[in-house]
Amino acid sequence: MLFKGIILEINEDVTQSVHNLVDHYRSKGISESQLTVVQRQCHQKSRIWWYTDEIFLYGVLDRALRLFDIEPVIKLSFSIRHQHRQLEQLYSEQSHAYRRKFKVYRGQGLSKQKFQQLTDTKGGLLSFNNFLSTSKGKHVATKVVKRVLHKHTDILGVLFIITIDPKKISAKTTLFTRHTDFRVTDMKHPSRNSRLWEMKLMLTGDKDSQLVVLSRRMKEEIDDKGWKTTNDSDPAHIYHQLGWLKNEQGQYQQAAAFYEKSLEAHRKTLPESDPSLAPTLNNIGLCDYYMADYSTALQFYEKELNLIQKSLLQNHLNFAASYSCISDIHNKIGDFSKVLEFYEKSFKIRENSLSPNHPDLSTSYNNIGQVYDNMGNYVKALELCKKRYGN
């Protein structure tokens, strides 16, 4: 849902995007005949046609959306945006033709682990990463799921029975935009086949109370962690968001790569000394820290420190955070004298800027105390431990 918002913000030239896409997949071994079709007909066919046609784009995009593989999603983001807009247009044009609720069907194979996760959502909300292609004929979806079960003996089959609000779009084959939200109403075995299940879904709307609360809460939590709330569609902003997402997934190498792209995009319009680059430098350093590349992390932390030194007063709390990051690096390296030096710098700023009972001061006492403990100065370590607990 939130990632969908990021993709829809991107605003790139379609012709250039197609050129980049073709170059990328030529290196991946896609046949020249398919690439030529994409280049010559990219403006002649609708994006929905591209997604449903039996060409490599469908398989690449569907897999990337399901697995949340960001690189191909970015390469195809122009197509995702156009598909989404065309579905919105179709909804606007066709919704008046449907007055009563109706059902559509989708057959799909799932691993046992994915199926277990699915059963846990009963009564709750369910969202699919990919565009969801369905049929108005139950027999079509049933054939699909039975064919999958016959081909793969280690998976389970699910026949999704989706009830649609009359205001939603429809056609003989219904294609939902990605991250459409459904409520899971029921699930059961339709036959004696223990590997085949039916799951009933109800298409939700923007007024679903649980969905509204969930969306608001997610955005609040993300804003607290540094999500950029600007509506800018510039590449620097988009890459920052993607870096944040990959960092949250624990995929630090990819996160660092997106943060570096954000930094590169910023540098096209900002001077090297601009202090607004500091948070991105810190983010890259943190990714390197998580990957145990401490020398590289230290370089980025020091670059961040140099920037904020040019724009902030020496007692600003941002300095305390920067000093703490550098201390953590030296602690990993085992240079305890440097650890102590920067932890004490951090502590002095916090001591002068925060109330005596602020939890950050307790953290500083603990950090410095641990350094003295590592250095064998147990008397000093005990003294700081007592200060931490107010003794």
Rank of each mutant, 00 (worst) to 15 (best):
K268S: 03
T269W: 00
T269Y: 01
T269S: 09
T269A: 06
L270H: 04
P271D: 14
S273T: 09
S273V: 06
S273Y: 06
S273M: 04
D274W: 04
D274M: 05
P275S: 07
P275R: 02
S276D: 05
L277V: 07
A278I: 08
A278V: 09
A278G: 07
P279D: 05
N282D: 11
N282C: 10
N282Y: 01
N282W: 00
N283K: 05
N283C: 05
G285Q: 07
G285V: 07
C287S: 11
Y289S: 03
Y290C: 11
M291N: 10
M291H: 03
A292E: 14
D293H: 14
Y294P: 06
T296C: 08
Q299A: 11
Q299M: 03
Q299G: 08
F300E: 02
E302I: 05
E302N: 14
K303Y: 01
E304M: 10
L305D: 04
L307M: 07
L307S: 02
I308W: 02
I308C: 02
I308Q: 01
I308T: 03
Q309T: 10
Q309S: 15
L312N: 02
L313R: 08
Q314M: 13
Q314E: 15
H316M: 04
H316S: 04
L317S: 14
F319A: 01
A321F: 06
S322T: 10
S324I: 03
I326R: 01
S327I: 08
I329Q: 01
H330R: 03
N331Y: 13
N331M: 11
K332M: 15
D335L: 15
D335W: 14
D335Q: 15
F336N: 13
S337L: 08
S337Q: 06
K338G: 00
K338A: 09
V339F: 05
L340T: 04
E341V: 00
E341H: 11
F342A: 05
F342L: 09
F342D: 06
Y343N: 08
S346Y: 06
I349L: 05
E351R: 02
E351A: 02
S353H: 10
L354H: 11
N357L: 09
H358S: 11
H358V: 08
H358M: 09
P359F: 08
P359Q: 08
D360K: 13
D360A: 14
L361A: 08
S362Y: 15
S362D: 13
S362M: 14
T363K: 14
S364R: 05
S364P: 04
S364N: 09
Y365G: 07
Y365D: 03
Y365H: 13
N367S: 13
I368A: 01
G369P: 03
Y372A: 02
Y372W: 04
D373V: 03
D373H: 13
N374Q: 15
N374V: 03
N374Y: 12
M375C: 11
M375Y: 09
G376D: 06
Y378M: 09
Y378G: 06
V379I: 15
K380Q: 07
A381K: 00
L382M: 11
